Computed example of a mutant assay.
Amino acid sequence: MGGNDDNLRLFQSAPHPCGYWPDREARDLVLDPRDPRLPELYPMALRWGFRRSGDIVYRPACSGCRACVPVRVPVAEFAPNRSQRRCLARNADVEAHIVAPACTGEYLSLYQRYLAHRHLGGGMDDHGAREFEQFLIGTWNESRFLELRERGTHRLLAVAVTDLAADALSAVYTFHEPDAADRGLGTLGILRQIEWAKRDGRAHLYLGYWIAGHPKMDYKRRFRPLEGYAGYGWARLQD
């Protein structure tokens, strides 16, 4: 991977059910989770198409399938489209706050309601405080929670878990109020993260993996321009 990669160890996971296509089997390429250099290696791993989940930094490495494409937004060039401008206007009463990551009762309650509504039966139904901390906070990464709250009531609407790198932000996971579906909080979270990255002078917002035509993943194509990683470098995805 270049740079400080002396004796860098990569592992291939055992086959496991694909989280996106139930009839497929998946495998991942994983950086050694015991490597003390992970905080140093992580920004470089992002540039190589890896992603963090808990303390694990991984990239899909499935035999015969390349559906998962790492994508990122070059934030200086981004301009919201008509639909995204409507989302911003619809949420003019929502304030964004950047706070330290923590497992509070308020966060955990929202997280559990979100999982029950969006991912029922998906293997995360029994997530409690321990799983929240393991999955979203981790032990070695530098992260922040981007809170979205309703102005006046201070009601928590969404939390976008965001990793900080020297020249980028990485959108790790967003959970939001299922009773406010008309607000488009998932889209709003990404728009606020793009604004944050641009305000900080960071070059990119990493959005994880895009899967063409997948109902839960194809929304990422609406954030343009969008760059994809093809194993040898990043290139602009065509409309």
Rank of each mutant, 00 (worst) to 15 (best):
residue 121 G to S: 02
residue 157 L to W: 05
residue 202 R to A: 12
residue 62 C to D: 07
residue 181 A to T: 15
residue 31 L to K: 04
residue 31 L to W: 01
residue 86 R to T: 07
residue 120 L to D: 01
residue 40 E to G: 02
residue 95 E to P: 00
residue 208 G to Y: 04
residue 131 E to A: 14
residue 40 E to T: 02
residue 27 R to N: 01
residue 80 P to F: 03
residue 180 A to H: 14
residue 93 D to Q: 08
residue 33 P to W: 04
residue 186 G to P: 10
residue 181 A to C: 14
residue 227 E to V: 08
residue 91 N to L: 09
residue 77 E to S: 12
residue 161 V to S: 15
residue 18 C to H: 02
residue 75 V to N: 03
residue 95 E to R: 10
residue 152 G to S: 14
residue 149 R to I: 08
residue 114 Y to G: 05
residue 162 T to K: 09
residue 171 A to I: 09
residue 61 A to V: 00
residue 207 L to P: 06
residue 160 A to M: 11
residue 215 P to W: 04
residue 65 C to Q: 13
residue 23 D to H: 15
residue 112 Q to W: 00
residue 56 I to P: 02
residue 210 W to T: 04
residue 218 D to W: 10
residue 210 W to Y: 15
residue 222 R to C: 05
residue 30 V to Y: 08
residue 81 N to V: 00
residue 123 G to W: 06
residue 70 P to Y: 01
residue 148 L to G: 15
residue 110 L to E: 02
residue 9 R to A: 12
residue 106 E to I: 00
residue 7 N to E: 04
residue 34 R to C: 13
residue 24 R to L: 10
residue 13 S to Y: 04
residue 141 N to V: 11
residue 237 L to G: 02
residue 164 L to K: 12
residue 232 Y to P: 00
residue 46 L to H: 06
residue 126 D to S: 11
residue 60 P to S: 13
residue 118 R to W: 05
residue 147 E to T: 10
residue 13 S to C: 07
residue 24 R to H: 10
residue 142 E to A: 08
residue 6 D to F: 07
residue 234 W to M: 06
residue 48 W to R: 10
residue 80 P to Q: 01
residue 137 I to Q: 06
residue 97 H to W: 09
residue 168 A to E: 10
residue 88 L to M: 03
residue 198 K to A: 15
residue 105 G to Q: 02
residue 156 L to P: 13
residue 146 L to P: 02
residue 173 Y to F: 14
residue 153 T to D: 13
residue 56 I to T: 09
residue 124 M to Q: 05
residue 120 L to Y: 00
residue 123 G to T: 02
residue 125 D to I: 13
residue 192 R to K: 12
residue 58 Y to P: 05
residue 217 M to Q: 03
residue 212 A to R: 03
residue 39 P to N: 12
residue 88 L to A: 00
residue 211 I to T: 00
residue 89 A to D: 08
residue 107 Y to A: 01
residue 179 D to V: 14
residue 98 I to R: 12
residue 234 W to D: 01
residue 146 L to D: 06
residue 205 L to T: 09
residue 16 H to Q: 15
residue 24 R to G: 02
residue 133 E to V: 07
residue 57 V to I: 13
residue 89 A to N: 13
residue 196 W to D: 14
residue 78 F to S: 05
residue 220 K to H: 07
residue 112 Q to D: 01
residue 160 A to V: 13
residue 33 P to C: 09
residue 178 P to C: 11
residue 2 G to S: 15
residue 140 W to D: 08
residue 153 T to H: 09
residue 49 G to F: 00
residue 69 V to F: 06
